[in-house]
Amino acid sequence: MTVRLRAHHLLCMLTYVGKGYSPAFCTGFDAIARRLSGREEILIVEGPDDVCQPLLGEEGAHCHRPGVLERDRRAAAAVAALLDWPIAPGERLRLDPRLLARLRRAFEAGTIRAACGKCEWSELCTRIAANGYAGTRLDMAKDVEAA
Rank of each mutant, 00 (worst) to 15 (best):
R98I: 03
R137A: 06
R137E: 13
L69A: 12
A24N: 07
L14C: 14
I87S: 01
E123C: 03
A31M: 15
I112R: 05
R6Y: 06
A78S: 15
A7K: 10
E41K: 14
P54K: 07
L93A: 08
T2E: 11
G117H: 06
G18L: 02
P23V: 00
C119V: 13
D84R: 15
A77F: 04
C116F: 12
V144P: 01
L14D: 01
R35P: 00
R137L: 08
R94L: 01
G67C: 11
E40A: 11
W85E: 13
A75K: 00
L69Q: 14
L138D: 12
A129I: 10
V51Q: 02
L103V: 10
E145Y: 08
A81R: 15
Y16N: 07
D72Y: 05
A106N: 03
T111D: 11
P86D: 07
I44P: 01
A130R: 08
G20L: 00
M13K: 05
G60I: 05
T2V: 14
R71T: 08
C26F: 01
G60D: 04
R73Y: 04
F107G: 04
E145G: 12
A77I: 00
E46Q: 06
A141H: 01
C116G: 13
V51D: 00
A147K: 04
V144W: 06
E41N: 06
G57Q: 13
A130C: 08
A33F: 09
R4W: 07
R35Y: 04
A147P: 13
A146M: 15
V45E: 00
K19Q: 08
V79Y: 00
V144T: 14
M13N: 05
T126S: 01
A109L: 06
L103R: 04
R39T: 12
E40R: 07
P89A: 03
F29S: 00
R98C: 15
A80W: 05
G117A: 12
V51I: 12
A77M: 03
E108Q: 13
L82P: 11
L43K: 10
R6N: 02
G18M: 06
E46S: 15
S37V: 02
H64L: 01
C26P: 09
L99I: 01
P54N: 08
D30T: 14
L93K: 05
R98M: 02
A134W: 03
V79L: 11
P54T: 01
G28V: 08
L55F: 09
A88V: 11
A31S: 14
G90T: 06
L55I: 10
G28S: 10
A134G: 04
A141N: 12
T136S: 05
E145I: 07
H9W: 01
Y16T: 05
L124Y: 10
I128R: 13
C119W: 14
A147E: 14
E58R: 15
C12L: 09
Y21C: 09
E123I: 03
A106C: 09
A80Q: 14
C52N: 11
V68S: 02
R92F: 08
Y21L: 03
A129L: 02
A77P: 09
T136P: 03
A24C: 00
G18D: 04
I32F: 01
